[in-house]
Design a protein around this nucleic acid. Structure first.
Lengths: 188, 188
DNA sequence: GCACTAACTTGCGTACTACGCAATACATTC
DNA sequence: GAATGTATTGCGTAGTACGCAAGTTAGTGC
């Protein structure tokens, strides 16, 4: 969606507060009313790509061979979203934008969390069908929530770091591995 | 804060959409402007008690004896927030309100997530000081995120259930236990 | 008792967002 | 060619967010 991209670019350049909905609409060549037909707010538009990526996670998990252990399948389905920029990993400029916007603006942080939560539901379904759980089983929901939480913690932690000792994908991988293994392997 | 309580009650009675900020202010006896001095939106006001409860989690963890294993300390600090209604557990009417509002309205769900995320940061600090981690260590953040995520998954799952086979506190306990143990004990 | 300060509250005005409604344009189908 | 469905738009309205300045109240030191 062009609107989402334009909103993202404008917000990255001028800051979220100074971007106006009519401005975004004009950049794409539609009316402000049309913008609101697609997005309820500029925040939602900016985060839209993230929610797409979150939705992809469940698909990636479903595409993995059923023979693969759940733990590694989870780790890889998530981590491949943070592969090298450009290809199927991160879109260009996402890192800069994320740092400047989502990590900084509380309003966007809320939208980001909502997007992740939406993806979490899909992931829970994918997990449930993979481990053959009943529909009202608690476990898939907890697993999905835990994995997404670890992913989010890793991303935020990576942005907090001043010195970059390892690429984002590796940090995400480590975090999910940590979450999947639980406290058993750590300092009890 | 009276405003938060009034907002909650009014929203519970009339639905979120039909509650107006001036209405909330009038119910407490202040001006609408004063409302916005304290809360940026009615959603934030409604969720305010939840964010207080989230903040309490970190304190509860810090108050637990250092000799207690981290896993059980985490489980209990969270689960005691969901104790029997009235005392130090859930405030009266919280369950009904939560089901009718937070679980149903997407806007409130976003605020709820933000509140949980804020509490998560405090929890991460408490965990870090408990296990003596460095400030830039990934582990406390992942642990905090995982625990909060499991808590949230349990609450939402409990509300999705039509038949209540066990009290909320037990479900929360089970979820956090599950998260803390990781995938090791489950279907790999 | 008297000024002084700080925190809280309020009214006013402004900018912006959200959205219902109705009208239009365009493409698709029968 | 007529009918139907979808996308877009302008307009109008309701409501929220917030800066600013003025007023109130409580507390403090002299």
């Amino acid at each position: 969606m062009d609107l989402a991209l334009a909103a993202f670019e404008l917000a990255k350049a001028d800051g979220l507060a100074s971007v106006r909905v009519p401005q975004i609409a004009e950049a794409v060549g539609v009316s402000p009313r049309t913008f609101n037909n697609y997005f309820p707010s500029k925040e939602a538009a900016i985060v839209f790509p993230t929610s797409l990526r979150a939705a992809r996670m469940a698909n990636d998990l479903a595409d993995r061979p059923a023979s693969e252990p759940l733990a590694s399948a989870l780790i890889e389905s998530v981590a491949c979203l943070y592969g090298p920029e450009g290809q199927d990993g991160l879109p260009d400029g996402w890192l800069d934008g994320f740092r400047a916007l989502v990590a900084a603006e509380p309003a966007l942080h809320g939208e980001y969390l909502k997007a992740m939560a939406a993806g979490e539901r899909d992931l829970a379904d994918a997990i449930a069908s993979r481990i053959g759980a009943a529909a009202d089983d608690l476990e898939p929901f907890v697993l999905a929530a835990v994995v997404v939480a670890a992913e989010r913690a890793a991303v935020l932690h990576w942005f907090r770091q001043t010195t970059r000792r390892s690429p984002l994908a590796d940090v995400v991988r480590a975090a999910i591995d940590m979450a999947v293994r639980g406290l058993t392997a750590t300092s009890c």
